[in-house]
């Protein structure tokens, strides 16, 4: 009963949030609208990491690499070869999946601290290419003047409101794909692996293969976020995929609530808004961001959604014993 009670709330909350996101643009200043667009794109990235961090229990320190792979695909293909939206999108997602397929072979041999460290080294490989492979990536200058996508639609994505709806569509698509995945038997198996790998193995599940497929999905959706990011920003540089970005994605997931999908999206928008709004008022926003990192772990180790869930459980009447 307790679970269904919360899920009832959850459905209502998701509906309301979705509706608000849909009708919001005309009421927002252009600054807030760009921040909301950014939030949506980062939310996709955070949700993709949630598949391996929240559902499978593997903390990756190199997830920014997939953002970078998607973004650089768009940057290079559209500025050098004049590729259109669908080609760049397919290439970005495909490249991210292929790289995840290679990285997964290496990284999934380890767990815990070792997994963290290996994904860090792999993330640095991608960052290093962006930073130094100047003939391809223009190094630290980055690739600029990436044109907004042109689709056979009556409105132009160079305008901020249509682009917002493009990002929203991307976000909803990613959200529903991931939601279907985590509610499927496959997703439940991932949760089982998180809770007890040895038990799942004893039950006859192919643990490695499940982790590997989860890793590929996370990489592919991460690449999708990167594609949107490059189009949104019109610019991609190694700073987008540095170590600090990877840690920031971890923070987004942890702040919102691991293994809830909605939580990481919420965490991503909080961090994006915080970074941009606070930096308007003070130069000391790094201090505040640092405090958010520490505060999250001290006060909300299960994230905002986790804390809310505990709170609603405590508020609801004590369950009957027979339910357990």
């Amino acid at each position: 009963m307790r679970e269904t009670l919360f899920q009832g709330y959850q459905g209502v909350v998701l509906g309301v949030v979705g509706l608000l996101l849909f009708v919001a643009p005309p009421f927002l200043s252009s600054f807030l609208l760009t921040l909301l667009t950014q939030s949506l794109i980062y939310a996709i990235l955070a949700m993709s990491l949630d598949i391996i961090l929240g559902y499978t229990g593997l903390a990756s320190l190199g997830h920014a690499a997939y953002l970078g792979l998607g973004a650089y695909s768009v940057g290079i293909l559209s500025t050098k070869y004049g590729a259109g939206f669908w080609v760049a999108l397919a290439a970005g997602v495909l490249l991210a999946v292929v790289v995840a397929a290679i990285f997964g072979l290496v990284a999934l041999r380890a767990t815990g601290v070792y997994f963290l460290m290996i994904t860090l080294a792999l993330g640095m490989v991608v960052w290093g290419l962006g930073h130094r492979w100047v003939s391809m990536t223009q190094g630290d200058n980055g690739i600029s003047a990436i044109p907004r996508p042109k689709l056979p639609l009556p409105w132009s994505f160079a305008e901020s409101i249509p682009f917002y709806y493009l990002a929203l569509a991307g976000f909803l698509l990613a959200f529903f794909i991931l939601r279907v995945i985590v509610r499927s038997p496959f997703g439940q198996t991932l949760v089982g692996i998180r809770e007890s790998e040895s038990r799942m193995r004893t039950l006859g599940y192919h643990v490695w293969l499940h982790k590997y497929i989860g890793f590929l999905i996370a990489g592919g959706i991460g690449g999708f976020a990167g594609v949107l990011w490059a189009y949104y920003n019109g610019f991609v540089s190694p700073a987008d995929l540095q170590l600090a970005t990877s840690v920031e994605i971890l923070l987004m997931v942890a702040l919102g609530g691991r293994g809830t999908l909605f939580g990481p999206a919420l965490g991503a928008s909080i961090i994006v808004l915080l970074k941009n709004l606070v930096s308007v008022y003070t130069h000391r926003w790094l201090l505040i961001l640092g405090a958010v990192y520490i505060g999250t772990i001290v006060y909300a180790p299960e994230g905002i959604v986790g804390a809310l869930r505990q709170w609603t459980q405590r508020a609801s009447p004590a369950p009957l014993r027979a339910e357990t």
Binding site: G112, R258, L289, G290, Y293, I294, I297
Partner: peptide, 16 residues
Amino acid sequence: GQELGQVLTTMGFALI
């Protein structure tokens, strides 16, 4: 034993 907590806490200190 909490890798995620350690990474985020020490990252917070690094930023500060």
